[in-house]
Design a protein around this nucleic acid. Structure first.
Lengths: 221, 221
DNA sequence: CCTTGTGAAGCTGTTCACAGCC
DNA sequence: GGCTGTGAACAGCTTCACAAGG
């Protein structure tokens, strides 16, 4: 397969843009629900909470899907963005750690509508292994390899305690998983080709606390 | 109160740095647990997963707390960072929405060690109101004003369904809350002086999916 | 001699402002 | 006329490389 210079699907979209495309997609879905068939960059940007120039520049990385003087066709743009971020195919997700957080994610409806299927649950606690959560049997984390294979897992979510996370990730990497979303508050070491993203609840609170402290300090001055 | 130009507590720390300071703090805590009393920028940076030059520049925004040729004293640096991000005082947190996610956060031990106390739980579901979760009684979301006042809430976490989020936030803003962590997948509109941070699980998965798709595309080429 | 602290360079992302086009 | 697409200016962050200093 040869990629032509004009093939936009091969150029890499800036990270900041990639992070916003799902927001636009969600906003467009809301427009479609409200039977809005066309919108301007201003309308879409306001509903998505971004600057209109930024929205247009973001979209320009995918191609030229608007009409000057008119705006964007909602369904068409929706399709193009979905295409660009690869939301056209379903992906099976494994959740490692079936505590409250794992269960919250297992039952989250928002995943399904974005092309993700929670297809595997594993845990280390023998009291949880074998139980059924959200229609799925919880498997032993020791069998992680089998679960990844059997369910063709492409993304894993770590919701184990921090101490267990690295061990679980090592198992996932061995099993061939290359995309990991980490909720455990610890640094994971993985090979070059594995992509890890981190969500850290306390850090978010700490950032809010810093800004709050700063606001009150400024008032003092 | 007058702030002198030399008072570093008044200069604003770059956002990117603020987001990493909690990571350094956590890394230093791990060092302290292992009885390490001194460390170089290289050691700390590696354990925290950042470039050493970035670490040093980050720390330089707080002041000059290292010793050339030697490194940093773990406990001293820990104290200085905690001071800078305002982790010296406790903050009471309210969780709005006591589903699985809300319960996961209510029971999360990591908050306590970082100076956050979950001091209030509210929900709209009458089946949940009055029940006790993690030692706290769940209150009616309609009484949010009273809960915020009685518990001196300074930060609120939204773990309600997306449809309810804006209504809840309006109530919180009226009650005087100025820092909000939003887990609901929706854009919140708040007055200027209110600080909102957003955590969106599906967007994280969508970003991972994009990179995964891209990796396989490149292999094709 | 060793490691910090920091100017300077380079890179990424944002915003402006307008040319291009329907 | 009006809105998109984009070069150019700008702002912020990262990294380098080295002077400063224990």
């Amino acid at each position: 397969m040869t990629i032509l210079p004009t093939d936009l699907s091969s150029v890499d979209i800036p990270d900041a843009t990639v992070a916003r495309l799902p927001v636009y997609l969600r906003t467009l879905a809301a427009f479609a629900d409200r039977k809005i068939s066309t919108c301007s960059s201003l309308e879409l940007a306001e509903a998505a909470g971004v600057n209109p120039a930024k929205l247009r520049k973001d979209l320009s990385h995918l191609g030229s899907y608007g009409v000057r003087g008119v705006g964007y066709e909602v369904e068409y743009l929706r399709y193009q963005i979905a295409q660009a971020i690869g939301q056209t195919q379903n992906r099976n997700v494994l959740i490692a750690g079936v505590g409250h957080l794992g269960q919250a994610l297992a039952g989250y409806r928002g995943f399904t509508t974005r092309g993700f299927t929670v297809a595997g649950l594993v845990d280390a606690d023998s009291a949880r292994i074998g139980t059924v959560v959200e229609g799925l049997t919880v498997h032993d984390i020791a069998d992680i390899n089998d679960v990844v294979d059997a369910q063709s897992i492409s993304i894993a979510v770590i919701t184990t305690p921090a101490e267990a996370a690295q061990r679980v990730v090592d198992g996932l990497v061995t099993a061939g998983v290359t995309s990991i979303l980490n909720f455990a508050p610890t640094l994971l070491s993985v090979p070059e080709h594995v992509d890890v993203r981190k969500v850290d609840m306390s850090i978010e609170l700490q950032i809010l606390a810093y800004h709050q402290q700063r606001r009150t300090k400024v008032v003092d001055a």
